[in-house]
Simulated scan of single mutants.
Amino acid sequence: MSKEKERNRTIHLIRILIGDVIAARERLNLADTQTARRDVVRASLAAIEGEIWLAREHVREALRDFDELSPLADFALSEQTYVVTENGKLLAQARSVPLPTAVRLIVVQTQIICPELAVDFTGTGWSNFRRAVSIRNRITHPRPENDLDVSDEELHAVASGLSWLAATVEYIMTNTNLALVETKAFIDQLLAGDPDAIEAYQAALEQKQ
């Protein structure tokens, strides 16, 4: 499948997930029940997972384009690991990464190609994002000691967490796309024999040595 087709499929998926959030909120407005509140939480976290998957694949592809995708990062961003069987065969295994950890991973890997990238992990957006994940986990894996009710404050935290993540993903993708455009322009200048570009390229090589 081409990159363009894969990108279109991903965008279609995100639209469906966001549409589910909107529909769940509309049902809640019509009938404010705990069932409707839990539906909003579940739909919102499904959208969060979709956004994280989109960002993870985007950054993985960008790192590959820059030839900066390490084997370890490739495994981590793919949520994969491997085992070696007794007869020497390699087997791939899925390895789920907690959502907050996945966001941190995506940001750290993005900073390899966009060092100026700065995501705020101290504000209420990040705090609400982590709380949203915790709320979803609580109602998805019920235990006798856990309360399945979702409060107004928790609904606000879930909405805030989703909004923070969506803005963060857009910020990451915009910066990586800009870096790719700037790199292509720089390569074109090098191929055209631009003296400033050549000097900058030589200086960068010296720094790596």
Score class of each variant (00 low, 15 high):
residue 202 Q to C: 08
residue 124 T to P: 08
residue 17 L to S: 08
residue 23 A to N: 13
residue 102 A to H: 01
residue 84 V to P: 03
residue 79 E to D: 03
residue 199 E to S: 06
residue 122 T to G: 05
residue 208 K to L: 11
residue 33 T to W: 01
residue 70 S to H: 09
residue 184 K to D: 14
residue 166 A to V: 11
residue 191 L to C: 04
residue 7 R to N: 11
residue 89 K to R: 12
residue 208 K to P: 03
residue 83 V to R: 11
residue 89 K to P: 03
residue 196 D to A: 09
residue 191 L to E: 13
residue 16 I to W: 15
residue 78 S to L: 03
residue 144 P to H: 04
residue 64 R to K: 14
residue 199 E to G: 04
residue 56 R to Y: 05
residue 124 T to E: 10
residue 129 F to R: 00
residue 178 L to K: 14
residue 56 R to A: 12
residue 11 I to A: 14
residue 18 I to G: 05
residue 95 R to E: 14
residue 170 E to V: 12
residue 117 L to D: 01
residue 133 V to T: 10
residue 96 S to H: 13
residue 47 A to M: 12
residue 1 M to P: 11
residue 163 S to I: 07
residue 82 Y to N: 02
residue 134 S to F: 05
residue 97 V to P: 06
residue 84 V to S: 06
residue 134 S to K: 12
residue 81 T to K: 05
residue 165 L to N: 01
residue 207 Q to C: 04
residue 149 D to W: 07
residue 126 W to Q: 00
residue 162 L to H: 13
residue 134 S to N: 10
residue 163 S to W: 08
residue 20 D to H: 08
residue 84 V to W: 09
residue 125 G to L: 06
residue 186 F to P: 15
residue 31 A to M: 04
residue 122 T to Y: 02
residue 102 A to W: 00
residue 93 Q to R: 11
residue 147 D to R: 10
residue 116 E to H: 08
residue 109 Q to L: 11
residue 99 L to R: 00
residue 131 R to L: 13
residue 174 T to Y: 07
residue 178 L to G: 10
residue 184 K to N: 10
residue 113 I to D: 01
residue 6 E to D: 09
residue 171 Y to Q: 14
residue 172 I to C: 02
residue 116 E to V: 09
residue 66 F to L: 13
